[in-house]
Design a protein around this nucleic acid. Sequence first.
DNA 1: TGCTGGCACTCCTCCAGAGCGAGTGCCAAA
DNA 2: TTTGGCACTCGCTCTGGAGGAGTGCCAGCA
Lengths: 338, 338
Amino acid sequence: MLSERRLEVLRAIVQDYVGTEEPVGSKALTERHKLGVSPATVRNDMAVLEDEGFIAQPHTSAGRIPTDKGYRLFVDKLAGVKPLSSPERRAIQNFLDGAVDLDDVVGRTVRLLAQLTRQVAVVQYPSLTRSTVRHVELLALAPARLMLVLITDTGRVEQRMIDCSAPFGETSLADLRARLNSRVVGRRFADVPQLVQDLPDSFEQEDRGTVTTVLATLLETLVEETEERLMIGGTANITRFGHDFPLTIRPVLEALEEHVVLLKLLGEAKDPGMTVRIGHENAHEGLNSTSVVAVGYGSGDEAVAKLGVVGPTRMDYPGTMGAVRAVARYVGQILAES
Amino acid sequence: MLSERRLEVLRAIVQDYVGTEEPVGSKALTERHKLGVSPATVRNDMAVLEDEGFIAQPHTSAGRIPTDKGYRLFVDKLAGVKPLSSPERRAIQNFLDGAVDLDDVVGRTVRLLAQLTRQVAVVQYPSLTRSTVRHVELLALAPARLMLVLITDTGRVEQRMIDCSAPFGETSLADLRARLNSRVVGRRFADVPQLVQDLPDSFEQEDRGTVTTVLATLLETLVEETEERLMIGGTANITRFGHDFPLTIRPVLEALEEHVVLLKLLGEAKDPGMTVRIGHENAHEGLNSTSVVAVGYGSGDEAVAKLGVVGPTRMDYPGTMGAVRAVARYVGQILAES
DNA sequence: TGCTGGCACTCCTCCAGAGCGAGTGCCAAA
DNA sequence: TTTGGCACTCGCTCTGGAGGAGTGCCAGCA
C-alpha cells in the first residue's frame, strides 16, 4: 500500500500536469507544493509510483506524467467533486430557464456543458422507454392515410405516417383515439404493448385490419425510436486535447460522429453516481486517449437519459465532475417543471 | 487578357496543387502536362500569372500555389462540373431510398455528401416559410393547457405548448381546429398570417382570448422556427484541411458550431445555380481558408432548402460540385415522392 | 515578337555536431 | 528514512554547411 505522502505526491503531479501540460519534475513539485520534504525524497517516491504504474516518463531525464492508472487512483481516492461557484450556478439556471421546448433544453444544455468544461459535451435526449405517454394523437390526412403523433411526458414528439389498406371512418378514428388514450396515457412506454394487446378485438371486423396496423406502428415507434438521439457541442474544444494533432483528433472526431458509439459510452454510466472512464478504459479505440465523464439525469427520482463530456485524459477531473453533476441536476429540474 | 496558354498553365497548376498539396514548379508542370512549350516559357507565363494575382509563391525559390483569385478563375472559366459515375449515382439513390422519415433523409444526405466529397457536409432542413401546411392539430393536454402541432408538406413537425388563461371547451377546440385547418391546409406558410387574421372575431367573447393566444403561438412558430435547423456531418474530414493544425481548424470548428453562421453561408447560395465561395469570399473570418460549395434543393421546381460542403480552398472543385449537385437532385426527388 | 537553353542566384530543407539544462538515479551521511 | 551531493542521460535548441529545387534574367534563334 502506498503511504500517505506518496499519494500526496501523486495528487501534486496530477494537478501540476493538468495545469501545465508538461512533465513535472521533483524540484518543481517541492517548490509548488508544501510537501515538507526535499526533492530527493520526492524522487524516491516517484520511483515507487512509477514501479507501481501510476506515473511514467516520456523519456529518460524528463519529468513524470500520470498514467491512466494514476488518474484512476486520483479520481477514486484523491479528488473530490468540486462544487460550482454560486455565480456559476445562477448562470446555469438562468440560461436553462429560457428554454422553450425540448430541443431547446437539450441544445442549451449541450452548449452550457461545453462552455463550463471547455470540452466536448454530449447530451442524450430523454429516452422513450423510461418515460410515460402524455398523449397519442391520430389524424386522418387522407381517407386511407393516417398520422400517428406520440407525445411524451418529457416533451418529446414522435410522428409516423400510416398507409391503411382500407378507408377508416372519422367515427372509428375518434373511437380508436379515445380508447387508445384512455389506456396508455400516463403509462410507461415499456408497459404499452400489453395494454393495447386486445384492442383490435373490440372493433368491427372491417376496421380491425387498420387498428392492427396503427398499433403495430405505435409499437414500432416505441421500439425503433429507443434507438436514441443525442446532441453534441463544443467540438472546437478538441483542439485543446493534445499537441500531436492530426493523429489524436482524427479518431476522436470520427467517434463523435458515430452516435451509436457515444450512446454506448453514455449507456455504461450507472444511474446513481457519476461514471468516469479514463483513457484505455473506454472500449472504443478512437477514444483511448480521452476520458469520459457521464451521469444520468431525470425529471423524477429516476434517470431518463444521460449526459456527459469527452475530454483529454489530462483534464481537471474535480471541476469537470462538478460541472457535469450540476448541469444534470438543473436539467432534471427543468424537465420536471415542464 | 490572359492568353489561352496561360490559362492552361493556371489550370495545370491548380490541378497539380490540388493533387499533391505542394507548390508546383515550372519543370514539373511541363513533365506532367502536355503544354508543348519549355519550362522557361512556363516560367514567363507564371511570372505574368503572379503579377495578375492568380498564383503566389510561399517564398522565393519555391513553386507556385493558386491564390483565391486563381481558384475563382479556375472555377468560373476553366473547370466544368464533373458528373458522377453511374455506380456512384446508383449508390446515392439506393442509400437515400432507404430513408424512413425526414430526419432520416437529412441524416443520410449529410453522411452521403461527407463520404462522397471527403469534406464537411451541411444540410439544411426544408424551410418552413417556403413549404405549405399539411395539417394543424390542437390537443387539450389539460383543461387550460393546449398543444399545437404543425405538420408540413415536407414531413416536418413542430409542436408548442400553450397555457391558456381560461379553460377551453372541447367543442370550441374542435371548432377552432376545424376552422383553422380549412383555412390554412395546403397554403404556404407565408400566407398564413393574413388567412387567420379575422378568426378570433367569429368566436364567442369568452373564447376569444384563447383563440388569439393560439393564433399568436402559431404565427410565432412560423416566424421563430424560420430560424432554420440544419445537420452537419463529416467533421472528421477537417483533419484533411491543412497541415498547420491547431490554428487552421479551430476557427473552422467554431464556425461549424454556430448554425447561424452556416445558415447565412448557405443562404447566400442563389437558387438556380451552384454557389462557390472561395477563401476570403466567405464573410465569416474563421472560414477564410476554406471554400464552400452550396446549392438549393427542393421537391418541386423551387428550392425549399440548401445543402453544401465546406472544404479546404485546395479542393477538387469539379468533383465536389458534381457530387453536391447530384445529391441535391436525388434529395429533391425523394422529397417529392414522400 | 515570342520561345528556348543556359546560368547565376536565392533560399528552403535536411543533417550533424555542440552546448545547455532539466531531471534522474545512486550513494554515503545524518 | 531522509537528505545533499554528484555523475550521467538525453531531449531541445542553435549553428553551419551541403544539397537541391526553383526562379529570374539574358542572349540567341525562329
